[in-house]
Design a protein around this nucleic acid. Sequence first.
DNA 1: TACGGAGTTGGAGTGCGCTCGAAGCAAGCG
DNA 2: CGCTTGCTTCGAGCGCACTCCAACTCCGTA
Lengths: 161, 161
Amino acid sequence: MTVLETVSGTVLESDLVPAGVCLQLESQRNRRPRGRDRYTISEVAEYTGLTAHTLRWYERIGLMPHVDRSHTGRRCYTDRDLDWLDLVARLRLTGMPVADMVRYAGLVRQGEETVAERERLLSAHRETVRRRIAELNATLEVLDYKIERYADTRRRASGRD
Amino acid sequence: MTVLETVSGTVLESDLVPAGVCLQLESQRNRRPRGRDRYTISEVAEYTGLTAHTLRWYERIGLMPHVDRSHTGRRCYTDRDLDWLDLVARLRLTGMPVADMVRYAGLVRQGEETVAERERLLSAHRETVRRRIAELNATLEVLDYKIERYADTRRRASGRD
DNA sequence: TACGGAGTTGGAGTGCGCTCGAAGCAAGCG
DNA sequence: CGCTTGCTTCGAGCGCACTCCAACTCCGTA
C-alpha cells in the first residue's frame, strides 16, 4: 500500500558511543583481559562497552546463560560468557530486539534439540539484515543526489558573487 | 577502548510494518494519490505509511515546513509536502534522530544562506550510513559462520540417527 | 434536522532499551 | 578502627519516537 514501509520500521541511534569508533572483528581476543577466565563485572563492562548496570539487567531478563558467583556473591564471568556477549552485541548491533535475543538464549539453554530452531532464527535475522543493507544502500543514492544538488547550488552562488 | 563500540549504538526495530514489505525507490510518483496537489491528512497517512497522529506530531515539533489549511482549519498537504515527507522518511529509515531532522528542517526554513550547512549535515549523515552498512556487512559474516556451524551440527546429528 | 465520519486540539500514555539511585555488604589499607 | 572502593539488590526513572484519548468542530447524506 504505502511507499515507505520498510523491513526495519523506525531506527534509533540512542547513544552515539564515545570516540574510538571502529569495529575490528579480529581484535577481540587480544583485547580480552589476559586469559584468566575469571572476570569481574567491571572488567567485562570495560571489555564489552556495556555498563555494569546493563550486564546485570541482561542477566535479570534471561539474556545471560547464568553467571558464576564468588564465595561472597560477586559475579565471575568466564571466557565463554565473553564469547556469548560478543554474539549478543552483534545481534543487538544489527537491530535484533532484546526479546528475540532472550528467546535465542532460552533455546541455547535448552540444549542440542533446539539447534534447528536456532538456525532458523538466525537465518531469519540474517535475511532481515540483508534487506536492511539493501534499504540503506538505496537511501545512500538519494543522499548522494541531494548532496550533489547542494554542492551545485553552492558553486553557482559563489560563481555569481 | 572496547571492542564493540559502534557508529550506531543500539538499534531498535519498533514496529515491523505489516506485510507488503518492499522499498521501491521508483514507484513513489505513481502511487501518489492522483496529482491534485491537495491531500487530506488521511490520504497522506495512507501514502507515507505514517499515522495521522504522527503527521500532526511532526508538525508540532517543527519537522514539517508549515502545512496549508482549508477554510475550516483542516490540513491541506501539497505535492511539495509529500516530497518533503519522502526525504524525512528516508532519513528516519537510515537512523537519523528526529532532533537532527528538526534541525535540518529549520535550516531549510531559513533559506538559501544555509545551503552549505545543510550539505555538511547530510554529508555527515551519509558517512554514518556508510559506516553502518560496513558494520552490518561485518556482522553478516559472523551470522553466516554461526548458521553454517548449526547446519553442520544438524547434518551430523541426522547422520548418526 | 439528525447522524456518522473525518478532522481539530492539548496533553497523557506506551514500549523499548537501558540507566540510575538508595541502601547495604565485604575486602583492603593507613 | 574507620574509610574508601567495588560490588550486591530492587525498583524507579529516562529518552526517544511515537500513540492514543477526550472533547470538540465541521461536512455530507438521509
